[in-house]
């Protein structure tokens, strides 16, 4: 059932990836940056699944699973960092204020 060709998948993934990248670059709020990162990860995962379907190999979905695990870890740690920063009295969640190391 040639519903969705590999080329279309790549096209969609590219657009999705670029949108995510733009989000990471544009937004200063770390929450939005995390969501944009998730969009980018999804784009990568979509390419894997698409390639798996194209060459009929289960490895694509295996990679999808691993990306899922990676995304879960990334989100959990990222959100924990946001909570930690927020608790320390940096209420704006501005990613640009975190440029000074304090031991």
């Amino acid at each position: 059932m040639p519903v969705f060709s590999f080329n279309d998948t790549l096209l969609l993934a590219t657009i999705l990836f670029s949108v995510g990248l733009a989000g990471v670059l544009i937004r200063r709020n770390m929450l939005f940056m995390l969501m944009s990162l998730d969009i980018m990860l999804n784009a990568a995962a979509l390419v894997f699944v698409g390639a798996g379907a194209r060459w009929h190999d289960a490895a694509g979905q295996v990679m999808f699973l691993l990306i899922l695990a990676l995304a879960a870890v990334e989100t959990a740690v990222g959100l924990a960092i946001i909570l930690c920063l927020h608790a320390r009295g940096r209420p704006t969640l501005d990613a640009d204020t975190g440029n000074l190391l304090q031991g």
Partner: peptide, 13 residues
């Protein structure tokens, strides 16, 4: 090297 994550991301991009 200004320590801003977004700038680093921009450099990567």
């Amino acid at each position: 090297q200004n320590g801003r994550v977004r700038w680093y991301a921009a450099w990567i991009a």
